[in-house]
Amino acid sequence: MNLIVWNIPETCSEQDVRDFLMHELGHYAKQVTVHEPGTSNAYAHVELNADVPYVGDVIAQQVHGKLLCGVALQASATPFNERPSPPPRRE
């Protein structure tokens, strides 16, 4: 399973995002990759240690709305066989 997290504040560094998600997801986070850090379009791709789709959905629901630097995150899960799409770009 993959998790896409977006609405990441521009003020957060790549390491801030990675540390936050690793802490929040614990052993479910296999790998965290942050794209476009420091921009309004920053997002993270998290590879999850979960094979069952509903587990990814539950994890996404738990992350969705969590505050990072005072901003509510948005999250969505996608199965391994689907390439995760980046979230829509903000202007």
Rank of each mutant, 00 (worst) to 15 (best):
L67M: 12
F80D: 04
A29Q: 06
E10D: 08
V5Q: 06
Q15T: 14
P79L: 03
S85V: 06
P9Q: 09
V55Q: 10
P84N: 00
T78E: 04
E10K: 15
W6I: 03
L21Y: 09
R89F: 10
N2Y: 15
S76V: 14
H35Y: 14
E14H: 04
Q31M: 11
R83A: 11
H23V: 03
D51T: 12
N81T: 06
L25S: 02
Y54I: 13
D51W: 10
P84K: 00
T11C: 09
Q74P: 00
Q15D: 12
I8P: 03
A60V: 06
A50Y: 08
V32R: 04
S76I: 13
V46N: 01
V55F: 02
D57L: 08
H27P: 02
D57F: 05
Q74Y: 05
L68P: 09
L21E: 07
G26W: 05
L68Q: 11
F80Q: 04
A75H: 07
T78D: 00
S76M: 12
A75R: 04
L73Q: 10
Q31P: 00
P53G: 04
V63N: 00
V58I: 12
T33R: 15
Y54G: 00
E47P: 00
H35Q: 13
P87S: 07
V46L: 02
W6A: 09
T39W: 08
I59Y: 02
M22I: 10
V32K: 04
Q62A: 12
F20C: 00
A75Q: 07
R83Q: 12
M1S: 12
D19W: 05
A29C: 11
L48M: 04
A44K: 06
H64V: 00
S76Y: 07
L3M: 05
R83T: 14
A42R: 01
S13V: 07
A60K: 03
I8R: 04
Q15K: 14
C12D: 03
A77R: 02
G65L: 05
G38Q: 11
H64K: 14
D51G: 13
Q74A: 13
T11N: 13
V71E: 05
Y28Q: 02
F80Y: 14
E36H: 12
T33I: 13
E10N: 08
L48P: 01
D19R: 14
S85H: 10
G65T: 06
P9S: 10
V52P: 01
P86A: 01
T11I: 12
G70E: 06
V34L: 03
S40Y: 09
V71Y: 03
I4K: 02
P86L: 02
H23S: 13
P9M: 09
L21W: 08
S85W: 06
V55T: 13
S40C: 10
Y28I: 01
F80V: 04
C69A: 15
D16W: 01
V63Y: 00
Q61G: 14
C69G: 02
N41Y: 08
V34A: 02
R83M: 10
S40K: 15
F80M: 06
L21A: 07
A29T: 07
D16A: 02
G65P: 04
I59M: 05
I4D: 01
A50V: 09
Y43W: 15
A75F: 09
H35D: 02
R90P: 00
I4T: 15
A75E: 05
H27N: 11
Y28W: 10
V58L: 13
A42C: 15
C12W: 01
N2G: 01
N81E: 13
V58R: 06
